[in-house]
Design a protein around this nucleic acid. Structure first.
Length: 721
DNA sequence: GTGCGACGATTTTAG
DNA sequence: ATCGTCGCAC
C-alpha cells in the first residue's frame, strides 16, 4: 500500500515520531509545531503500516473538542471511520470503563455523573446535615478540598489530619459526602478517574486485559495531567505496550487545578522514552516567535526548547498604552474595524485577557459598533439553570430515586414546598433508608405532613407520575417536550425574571428538545446496555455542550488566555497587560505561580499568526474602584527592537514598560508598589491610587501605622527606594 | 413559604 | 460594579 501521504508533509522530527519503531516516545512539542498532526499521522501509520488493529489503540485528550478533532482528522486521513479505536477524554474513557465494570467497583449499573454544580449542592447539603458552620466550612472550599484529595488518589482514610477540630471535620465531610454518593450511586468527575484507577489497581485480571488490549497508548497535552491521570496511564501501560506522550512544559498553565508538569520529567524517569523535540513553528511570524521565546526564557527549570520558523519577519509587535480601560477597548475595536475594512474576517481577530471581567468593556464597544462577537467561557449549555431544571425532571423520570434531581426541582416551579417540608422528607428518608421520592410518597400517604404541605407534595408526586406515564413510550425529544410543557417551567421564569432573560431560557429549552431529538446514542453505550436516556444524561454531564447551536461563524473572539490555549488567530490582542492584573496580584509573590503566569503570557503571544497587539491601561476600574498600574513586567521582557509603540493622542508612551508611565503631575510620580515616606507615619508602600487632580487619593500601607488613605495633594509624600 | 434588600467576596476552568 | 447567598419582613 502507498503510505507516502502519511509522511510527505512532515518535517524530520515529526516523521521520526510518526515512524518510531521501538520503545516509548516523549514528544516535546512547542506551540504551533504540529503536534496534533503527529498524533494523527502516528495512529494512521500504526494502522496502515504496522497493521495494528484500531481496537488496540487508545488516544487520550483533555477536551472533547480535541478528541473530536483528532477523530475527524484520522477518519479523513484513513478515509474511513476506524471502528474500535478509542479516542476520548480521560473522563470519557474512564466513564466507559466504569460502565463496563460497574459491579466490580461497587457501582450500580445506573450510576449517575455529578457535574460541578451538582457536587457543590451535595457538599452544601452534607455540611448542613452535619450542622456545621458554613462560614467555617464554605461549601466551595470543601468541594475543592475533596477534589484535590481525589485528584491525588486519596480517600478520606488516607488523609492525615493534625487536629481533632477543623481538619478532622473537613475529612468528616468528605467521608459523609462519599457515603452519600455510594448510597445514591453518584459519581463526580474526580471519582470517575479514581474508581478506574482502583479498578485497574485492584483487579489484576482486568489490568492484564487492558494492558494487552491497548498495544499503543497516546496522550495529548501531557503537561496538564494530574497525579491520578498519570497513575492511570501507568496502570494501562504494561510491559508490552508502547506509550507516546506529547507535551510542552512551557504551556503548562493549569498547576492551580492539580496539573503536575513534573509528570513530564517523571515519565522520562519511569519509561526512559526516546525524546523528540518539535521546534519548527508553522504558525507565527519570526517577530512574534522571537518575542515569545524571549519572554519564556525568563523562566528557570525549563526542559529547554527553542522554537524557530522559516516564516517571514512580519510586522513589529504593537504596544499601546491607554489612558484607561475604556480607551484601551476603543483602540482595540478600532484596529479590528480597520482589519475588517481591509477585507479581514471578524473571526480572525481575538481579544485575549487575563480575567473574564475584562470582557465587558470590549463587548460594549463591539455592540455599539455593531460588530458580531462571541465571548467564550461562562455557562455552557447543559450548565444553564433552566436546562439543569428540565434535566433534573428527566433524571427523575429515568430514576425516581435520584435524590439530587428530586431536591433540585421539588419546588421548581415554586409550589409551596419549603425548606421545612423538604427537611421532613429528608428526615423520613434517612430513618427509613429510603430515597426522597419514596419518603415523600409515604409521608403523603400517611398524612405525615400538614394539610397544605401534604397537598403541595402530592401535587409534585402526581406531576412526576403523570410525566412517567406520558413518556413511557416516548422518544427523548418527546419526553423533554412533555417535561417542559407539563412543569410549566417557562411560565415560572417569566413570572420572576425580566422578559429578555425569560425569553432566552425559553429558547434554550426549545434547543434542549432539538438536542434530544438529534441525539444519537453512541454504539458503545448501547453495547454496555445503557438506555438512550441514560446515555443522554451522562453525555450532558460529560460534554456540557460547547455552545449548542450557537452561530459563531464570523465573530470577533473574546476569551481568557486560558481558553485560548490550542487556538490560533491571524490578529491577536493581549489586553490588560498590567502588573497586578497580568501577572495577577495573587501570583506575584510566589515564584512558581509567577512562572506559570509567564507561561500563560507565552501561550497568549504564540496564538498570533500575523499580527500581535499588546495593550495596557494606566487606570481601570476594579471592583468599582479606580486603580492605577504599571505595564506588565512581561512587556519589558520583550526586546525593544521587536516593538513599535503607538501614540495615543498627544501623549507619547515609552517603548516598553520599563519606565513609569503614569500621568506625572497627578499621581506625583507614585505608582503601585512604590516605597514612600510620610512625615508622621514613616515608611510605607503604595497599595492603591484613586481619583485625579486635586481629588487624587492614595492608599499607603505603612510599616508602623498600618494602612491609611491620604489626599495626595496634602500628604507631602517623599518617594524612597 | 415567599420575596426583597443587605452584605460580602471577587483569577484562571475541562470534564 | 456585580453577582450570589442570607436574614428578615410579609
Amino acid at each position: 500500500m502507498d503510505v507516502s501521504h502519511l509522511l510527505d508533509e512532515l518535517n524530520d522530527a515529526q516523521r521520526q515520531a510518526v515512524t518510531a519503531e521501538d520503545g516509548h516516545l516523549l514528544v516535546l512539542a512547542g506551540a504551533g509545531s504540529g503536534k496534533t498532526r503527529v498524533l494523527v499521522h502516528r495512529i494512521a501509520w500504526l494502522i496502515q503500516v504496522h497493521h495494528v488493529s484500531p481496537m488496540g489503540v487508545l488516544a487520550v485528550t483533555f477536551t472533547n473538542k480535541a478528541a473530536g478533532e483528532m477523530r475527524g482528522r484520522i477518519g479523513r486521513l484513513l478515509d474511513l471511520r476506524p471502528e474500535g479505536l478509542w479516542i476520548g477524554t480521560f473522563h470519557g474513557i474512564c466513564h466507559r470503563l466504569l460502565r463496563m465494570h460497574a459491579a466490580e467497583v461497587g457501582l450500580p449499573d445506573t450510576f449517575q455523573i455529578l457535574d460541578s454544580e451538582d457536587q457543590y449542592r451535595l457538599v452544601r447539603r452534607v455540611i448542613r446535615d452535619m450542622e456545621l458552620d458554613e462560614g467555617e466550612h464554605p461549601p466551595r472550599q470543601v468541594q475543592g478540598f475533596i477534589n484535590q484529595h481525589k485528584d491525588e488518589g486519596r480517600r478520606p482514610e488516607h488523609i492525615e489530619h493534625f487536629d481533632r477540630g477543623f481538619q478532622a471535620r473537613q475529612v468528616d465531610i468528605y467521608r459523609r459526602y462519599q457515603e452519600y454518593c455510594e448510597r445514591s450511586g453518584l459519581v463526580d468527575f474526580a471519582e470517575l478517574l479514581l474508581r478506574t484507577v482502583e479498578l485497574l489497581r485492584d483487579h489484576p485480571e482486568r489490568r492484564a486485559h487492558y494492558q494487552s488490549r491497548f498495544g499503543h497508548i497516546l496522550v495529548d497535552e501531557f503537561q496538564d495531567t494530574n497525579t491520578l491521570q498519570y497513575a492511570l496511564v501507568r496502570l494501562l501501560a504494561g510491559n508490552a505496550n508502547r506509550l507516546l506522550v506529547v507535551g510542552d512544559d512551557d504551556q503548562s498553565i493549569y498547576g492551580w487545578r492539580g496539573a503536575r508538569v513534573e509528570n513530564v520529567a517523571h515519565f522520562d524517569r519511569d519509561f526512559r522514552p526516546e525524546i523528540i523535540r518539535l521546534e519548527q513553528n508553522y504558525r507565527s511570524t519570526r517577530t512574534i516567535l522571537e518575542a515569545a521565546n524571549r519572554v519564556i526564557d525568563h523562566n528557570d527549570d525549563r526542559m529547554g526548547k527553542n522554537l524557530w520558523t522559516e516564516g517571514e519577519q512580519g510586522e513589529p509587535i504593537r504596544l499601546f498604552a491607554a489612558f484607561n480601560a475604556e480607551e484601551e477597548a476603543e483602540f482595540v475595536i478600532a484596529r479590528i474595524q480597520e482589519w475588517i475594512a481591509q477585507g479581514g474576517r471578524p473571526s480572525d481577530c481575538a481579544v485575549l485577557y487575563r480575567s473574564n471581567a475584562q470582557s465587558r468593556l470590549f463587548e460594549q464597544v463591539l455592540l455599539r459598533e455593531d460588530i458580531p462577537y462571541r465571548v467564550y467561557g461562562g455557562l455552557r449549555f447543559f450548565e444553564r439553570a433552566e436546562i439543569k431544571d428540565a434535566m433534573a425532571y428527566l433524571r427523575l423520570l429515568h430514576n425516581p430515586h435520584d435524590d439530587t434531581a428530586f431536591e433540585r426541582v421539588i419546588n421548581v416551579p415554586a409550589r409551596g414546598i419549603g425548606e421545612r417540608t423538604v427537611a421532613q422528607i429528608r428526615a423520613h428518608a434517612g430513618s427509613h433508608a429510603q430515597s426522597l421520592g419514596q419518603a415523600a410518597t409515604e409521608l403523603v400517604a400517611q398524612g405525615g405532613l400538614s394539610a397544605r404541605a401534604g397537598n403541595a407534595v402530592r401535587g409534585f408526586l402526581q406531576l412526576i407520575d403523570a410525566l412517567i406515564e406520558a413518556t413511557e413510550a416516548a422518544s427523548l425529544a418527546e419526553a423533554a417536550g412533555a417535561v417542559i410543557r407539563q412543569t410549566e417551567l417557562v411560565a415560572w421564569y417569566q413570572s420572576r425574571e425580566p422578559a429578555d432573560r425569560a425569553e432566552a431560557r425559553e429558547e434554550n429549552l426549545a434547543e434542549l428538545v432539538r438536542a434530544a431529538d438529534s441525539f444519537h446514542q453512541p454504539f458503545e453505550d448501547e453495547q454496555a446496555g445503557l438506555s438512550p436516556m441514560a446515555s443522554f444524561l451522562s453525555q450532558a454531564a460529560l460534554e456540557a455542550g460547547e455552545h449548542q447551536g450557537e452561530r459563531w461563524q464570523d465573530c470577533v473572539q473574546l476569551m481568557t488566555l486560558h481558553s485560548a490555549k490550542g487556538l490560533e488567530f491571524p490578529l491577536v490582542f493581549l489586553a490588560g497587560m498590567e502588573e497586578g492584573l497580568f501577572p495577577h496580584q495573587r501570583s506575584i509573590e510566589e515564584p512558581g505561580r509567577l512562572a506559570e503566569e509567564r507561561r500563560l503570557c507565552y501561550v497568549g503571544m504564540t496564538r498570533a499568526m500575523q499580527c500581535l497587539y499588546i495593550t495596557h491601561a494606566e487606570s481601570r476600574q476594579t471592583y468599582g474602584q479606580t486603580n492605577f498600574s504599571r505595564p506588565s513586567r512581561f512587556v519589558a521582557e520583550i526586546p525593544d527592537s521587536l516593538i513599535e509603540s503607538i501614540r495615543s493622542g498627544f501623549r507619547v508612551t515609552p517603548a516598553t514598560g520599563r519606565t513609569d508611565s503614569h500621568p506625572q503631575g497627578e499621581a506625583g510620580g507614585l505608582s503601585l508598589g512604590c516605597g514612600v515616606r510620610h512625615a508622621r507615619f514613616g515608611l510605607g508602600t503604595v497599595v492603591s491610587l484613586e481619583g485625579q487632580g486635586p481629588n487624587a487619593r492614595i492608599q499607603v500601607n505603612f510599616e508602623q501605622a498600618g494602612s491609611k488613605w491620604l489626599v495626595l495633594a496634602y500628604a507631602n509624600l517623599e518617594r524612597v527606594g
